[in-house]
Every structure is written in C-alpha cells, then in structure tokens.
C-alpha cells in the first residue's frame, strides 16, 4: 500500500510540474489521468518493492553524481577514438562477475555499464555479465569492481 501512496505522490507532482496551470478543467483532467494510471499499474501488477525504491532516493542520487563524473571521463576516450584520423580501437568481450543480488541492483549495475560510453552489457545470466568494451584496457579484471560495489550499496544497502 505504501508503494501506491508513493506512486500517487510522484504522479501528482509530475503532472503539476508538467502543466503548471491551476484551472479547474486542467486539474480535473490531471486527477482522472492519475487515477487511470494507478488502476492500470495495479492491474498490471508492476508496483512492488523493486519498482519503487523510495527509501533509497538519497543513495541513488549520490550514486548518480559519482556515475555522472565517470561517464564524462569515459566520454573523452570514445570522442577521441571517433575523431582520430586513423582508426585505433581494441574491442573485447569480457565476462564480469557481480556481487549484486537483487534484480534492482543488477539492473542498476548493468545499466551503469551500458550508460558509460565504451562499455555495453550484452547479456546478463545469474551473477555474470557479458560486457563488450571498445578498449580492452577499460575492461580488464577489476575495472568494474568499484561500480559494482557502489551500485550494490545504492540499491541493496551494505554492499560487499
């Protein structure tokens, strides 16, 4: 039930931010949309612990800040590879083992790898991820350990 209240608050805030108007017609349309969305997500049974991590927003924000700096650093290498006159890349396909246990943590970790330019998660099986990297040096063993630890901390708490 708490997840539905969180969803309600999120939807109301989102609608009001997007419209920014106070006319009764607009507000009633918003109320109808919010109720419709909640009924649909209840029927689809997609509101559960993993899809509504409201308790971990602070951790996720901190993680996002760290990830954003990493993304900027990784961007530089790929941009240089794109504009260099002669092609100089060293693609590799590596297996990465993760300490993340819950689905949310695995999703966070895999999406972080994909979001960082130069590395893409190709498939996820159990606790092993198949990662394709533009430079083999970026994907050597241990290169993802810090990201792994931080995403486990952000979504599961504790970490390893």
């Amino acid at each position: 039930m708490g997840y539905f209240i969180g969803l309600l608050i999120t939807l109301v805030v989102f609608w009001y931010t997007m419209s920014g108007m106070n006319k009764p017609l607009i507000l009633s349309l918003g109320a109808v949309s919010v109720v419709l969305t909640m009924v649909l997500s209840w029927r689809l049974k997609i509101v559960d612990k993993d899809s509504s991590p409201y308790g971990r927003i602070v951790q996720f924000l901190l993680y996002w800040v760290w990830l954003f700096v990493e993304i900027l650093k990784a961007n530089w290498r790929v941009i240089r590879a794109c504009v260099k006159a002669d092609l100089d890349i060293n693609p590799a396909l590596v297996k990465v083992k993760t300490v993340c246990r819950s689905d949310l943590a695995k999703t966070t970790f895999a999406n972080s790898i994909t979001l960082t330019p130069g590395t893409v998660t190709v498939s996820v099986e159990g606790d092993k991820l198949l990662v394709h990297a533009l430079y083999e040096e970026d994907a050597e063993p241990g290169a993802f350990d810090e990201m792994d630890r931080r995403s486990a901390w952000a979504s599961d708490g504790g970490g390893a």
Binding site: N75, L87, I89, P117, V120
Partner: peptide
C-alpha cells in the same frame, strides 16, 4: 561520425552512446 566509420555493430553502439550521454 563514429557511428558511420566504426567497423562493426558493437563498436557503433559505443559511438551512439556519446549522443545519448554527453
């Protein structure tokens, strides 16, 4: 430009992610 000149599909994916992030 990276998407156009990289040699295979997986490497093009990396170039496309520059657009999506930076």
């Amino acid at each position: 430009a990276g998407v156009l000149r990289f040699p295979d599909f997986y490497t093009r994916l990396h170039a496309a992610s520059i657009t999506d992030t930076a």
